[in-house]
Design a protein around this nucleic acid. Structure first.
Length: 205
DNA sequence: TCTAAGATGGGT
DNA sequence: CCCATCTTAGAA
């Protein structure tokens, strides 16, 4: 890749207050990691928004604990947590200080370091990044990156010079049935017809 | 110190 | 549809 074709997203992008809008805007942008000397990355094709003040599905909903503390930081850092004891899920913290919002990145379309991603993922029968746990494994993201600056060297999000506006579809979020009515919010976004969007579970709406 | 649960993934 | 998974947050 020619790195001059990409520009890192500035902090101001993440510090806006509407996390749902940011979740949409992140589609079509790129995430890169440089871990263990290997550069890997791809285009974000699926996201979900989480709002700490009015969304029961958000880990930070009405609680500020060690785990959720990072979400209360100003936007532009990573929130990585372990799910089911195995999967490292990667989130982008948004909004200003003390407003705990985040965007879960659920799928990317690989574009750089594809061989490395396959090696890390291991299973050659499956796609390596069409799910939140899978893309983290392929990109080498673990909880060690919790709190990392998203304009840094280890991990960064960037925009391609000639990015075109993707066609966006919306649905309810995956796996948040415990959130009651908030599970019905149409806060999952994905690029229409993209092959790397995670396979749909429990079709709601 | 304990326990319960979880923003999944893969196989049938 | 079903279920293995196993660390850790959060409470006591």
């Amino acid at each position: 890749m020619n790195t001059s074709d990409y520009v890192k997203i500035p902090k101001s992008f993440y510090e806006k207050e509407d996390v749902v809008k940011i979740a949409r805007e992140l589609l079509g942008k790129y995430i890169f990691t440089q871990i263990d000397g290997k550069l890997t990355g791809g285009m974000i094709v699926e996201t979900e928004a989480y709002n700490g003040r009015m969304d029961r599905a958000c880990h930070a909903y009405h609680k500020r604990t060690n785990r959720t503390e990072i979400m209360y930081q100003p936007g532009g850092v990573a929130y990585v947590y372990l799910c089911y004891g195995i999967h490292h899920l990667f989130n982008i913290v948004t909004n200003k200080s003390d407003f705990a919002d985040a965007v879960l990145v659920r799928a990317i379309e690989p574009s750089l370091g594809i061989e490395t991603m396959h090696e890390r993922y291991g299973n050659h029968q499956h796609k390596v990044s069409n799910g939140p746990g899978k893309l983290s494994k392929a990109l080498g993201i673990t909880t060690r990156l919790n709190g990392s600056d998203l304009a840094g060297d280890k991990i960064f999000i960037a925009q391609h010079k000639s990015q075109k506006r993707p066609k966006i579809a919306a649905s309810t979020r995956i796996g948040v049935d415990y959130a009651g009515e908030d599970a019905l919010l149409p806060w999952r976004f994905y690029i229409e017809n993209n092959k790397w969007v995670s396979k749909q579970r429990t079709p709601v709406i």
